[in-house]
């Protein structure tokens, strides 16, 4: 089990066929204070790169995209009442949803930690 990242700053942690998805430390820092979160309902079909959840800061609304295709198992029910959790612990308690992935190899194909760190350095460049 290892963590993978998308260019849109989602993280994915795969355990068997179940992936936990959230937004990265970098993403929460860019968004600022998160005041609203909408997570998907169980059973929702997700396509890779399709809209999966919503996160809003004081300034703006943003979409959280599905990193790979699959089906939602559960949304993080704690987030809508405590959206600030995403700022406080984005890669822990601030996870957005769990999904059953159609093809685990799709997750492996995403960026690993080293590649994502390099990607962030390029963005900062």
């Amino acid at each position: 089990m290892s963590i993978r990242y998308t260019k849109d700053h989602e993280w994915v942690l795969l355990d068997g066929k179940i992936a936990t998805v959230g937004i990265t430390q970098y993403a929460q820092g860019q968004l600022g204070d998160i005041v609203f979160v909408e997570v998907p309902a169980a059973g929702k079909a997700l396509t890779a790169g399709g809209e999966a959840a919503v996160v809003e800061s004081v300034k703006a609304a943003s979409e959280v995209y599905a990193p790979v295709a699959g089906t939602v198992k559960e949304g993080n029910a704690a987030l809508p009442d405590a959206p600030e959790t995403v700022n406080q612990d984005p890669q822990g308690k601030g996870w957005f949803f769990r999904m059953e992935v159609a093809n685990p190899a799709d997750v492996e194909a995403l960026m690993d930690q080293t590649a994502y760190d390099k990607y962030l350095q390029e963005l900062a460049g």
């Binding site: 998308t6 849109d8 700053h9 989602e10 937004i23 990265t24 993403a27 860019q30 968004l31 996160v55 943003s62 979409e63 959280v64 995209y65 963005l123 900062a124």
Partner: peptide, 8 residues
């Protein structure tokens, strides 16, 4: 997530 790239 959609984040504006650094605007130069």
């Amino acid at each position: 997530m959609t984040i504006d790239p650094h605007v130069k």
